[in-house]
Amino acid sequence: MKPEDIFKKNIKTIRKLLLSFVLVFLMLIGGLFFFIRNETTKNTTIEAIESSDYVEISKEDDFDKIENGIHVATGFVEGDGLMLVVQNCTSCHSAKLVTQNRMSKEKWLATIRWMQESQNLWDLGVNEAPILDYLSTYYAPNQIGRRANLTDIDWYELK
């Protein structure tokens, strides 16, 4: 054999070796992929059976999450007493009923009393004071005057 023929043969062998390496590698990756996929499906199926109340779980997962000073799950402003308010004020009605309102401490207290007298709200006990502080701090009245300026105007070209 000439030296260049030996060289060509060696090249062929290396090429074959490389190709088989690539094939084995691809098979391994593929196998691993299907294995993981099957495992995932298996696990999720079990999860699905075990946790028919998965929506609750998803809430629990992010329940304490605060973003830009807002408690994501409820929309309440972050502040002292937040979780007491969440626990006591959102089991009957939406947090939105609180967050869209602005009241003085006296008016928030009157609202709590009204709910206790007529809407089955329980005695808030030692939690009443921090709840009132939270509400009257973060949901206090704004002085809007007798007629406010128009705001949030969405300008568009009239055709």
């Binding site: 995932t40 696990n43 999720t44 999860e47 699905a48 946790s51 998965y54 779980i57 998803s58 997962d61």
Partner: peptide, 24 residues
């Protein structure tokens, strides 16, 4: 795995609204 499943189901809900095939 639980999180993946939850994401999957919310996707599925969305998918049914959009009228495409439902994953999981």
């Amino acid at each position: 795995e639980r999180r993946k499943f939850i994401q999957g189901t919310s996707l599925a809900s969305l998918a049914s609204l959009l009228g495409v095939s439902i994953v999981f």
